[in-house]
């Protein structure tokens, strides 16, 4: 899957992404997980709507890859910045290594037994709600039932 970006555009993206998502503690910088390579191809492959705006951003950013430039760009062109931000952030958190580091297995299936007695029923918490009595307002009386 190729997103149709040039090597130069990818290099620009990598530099911008490392400012937006830098290395931090155990977490890698965006370029270290291939944000401008396979992650870009994956994101654009599923969200081709982001491609035109991202291309605009990368063309304008070439040679200006700095935090001050990004801050100003967010102020001046929030919609274009949003496309860049979406590609960087989604690409970063889709990455398997990033997910492993934050302890996120993804949205897993987790079967359960619906007949198991819930903790709130066993420990008396549910009973205390019931013991406080009805709280619904009865329109026939104009007050709580």
């Amino acid at each position: 899957m190729s997103a149709g970006f040039t090597e130069s555009q990818r290099e620009t993206l990598a530099r911008l992404a490392d400012i937006l998502a830098p290395a931090y503690g155990k977490m890698p910088a965006a370029s270290e997980i291939g944000i401008a390579g396979t992650m870009l191809d994956t994101v654009i492959g599923y969200r081709p709507d982001l491609r035109p705006e991202l291309a605009q951003v990368l063309n304008r950013a070439a040679g200006h890859e700095s935090e001050p430039w990004l801050r100003a760009f967010l102020e001046d062109e929030p919609e274009l910045f949003a496309a860049l931000g979406a590609v960087v952030a989604h690409g970063y958190y889709i990455n398997e290594e990033v997910r492993r580091l934050i302890g996120y297995p993804g949205q897993e299936r987790l079967p359960f037994d619906p007949d198991e007695t819930p903790e709130y029923a066993a420990n008396g918490m549910l009973g205390r709600v019931q013991a406080r009595g009805p709280i619904w307002r009865d329109p026939r009386k104009g007050e709580n039932a």
Partner: peptide, 20 residues
């Protein structure tokens, strides 16, 4: 998921959602 807490993608100011 993790994107639910990405303030930057949600449109927050730069310092609230990007960088460290």
């Amino acid at each position: 998921g993790p994107m639910a807490f990405h303030a930057g993608v949600a449109g927050a100011p730069y310092d609230h959602g990007w960088g460290e």
